[in-house]
Amino acid sequence: MTTPTREELSRRAFLRKCAEQGSATFVFGGMVLTTAMLRLPQEGVPGEPPPKAGKKHPEVIYGFVVDTTKCIGCGSCVRACKAENNVPDGYNRTWVEQYTFYPNGEVVVNSPKGGEDGFSDDFPDSNQPGEIGQRPDRGFFVPKLCNHCIDTPCIQVCPVGASYRTEEGVVLVDAERCIGCGYCVQSCPFGSRYLHPVTKTADKCTWCYHRITKGLKPACVEYCPAKARIFGNVSDPNSEISHILATNRVQVLKSYLGTNPRTRYIGLDSEVI
């Protein structure tokens, strides 16, 4: 154990000084850089994967937001969709789910006819309360529709290229080429697809592609009296949907499956699968 010499002390001091100065420079530099990056123009669209090298995002990328806190469960969207798209009985391109929570922990989910005739308290379905014999303590409605996933398994599995995505991000089915194998129906984690009983081809929500390409809103959005459905161009930072996506915490269904839905939800409960 020798006492440190002057020389050693000064070296230690020198090192300390270096460290202090260095870290100050580092922190300051970092702040400058961060500020600079914040001021850089934002390339790309929030929530969208980056475009391919040398390419830009399309000018129109559609997005959909469902605000479950606003849904009143009137079923207008379902009726509008069914009429607009001539959806066959027993199938739904969009539907509304009714979630009811009971004090004993039981969760009852219900969607009679997809909500086409609305909902009532007297639970027409056989699996519904009465038997539970309690007053519910919590409840809400959740509208569902095709999620138009960015990494969708339905396009992945279609053997003949009958399921495809338009540049605007809408997932569609070419009924002229669909062979009706049903693999896309199986691969959709959300039950959004069905085989049309008449055409014998896969069918699904198109976000009313025939309407949105004419400047109209999808029927379910247009006729939702509660403004629970918001549709628009996420590529346009000034659109209503971009504003909503920027100012809300949104979620997607079954995010763990990695399908990257373009339909996003506000106020999604963990019981909603």
């Binding site: 806190t69 009143i72 469960g73 079923g75 609305g118 009532s120 809400f140």
Partner: peptide, 12 residues
């Protein structure tokens, strides 16, 4: 009218 104005527990 029922669609919207009948009381349903889950309705906001």
């Amino acid at each position: 009218c029922e669609w919207c104005h009948f009381k349903t527990f889950e309705r906001p």
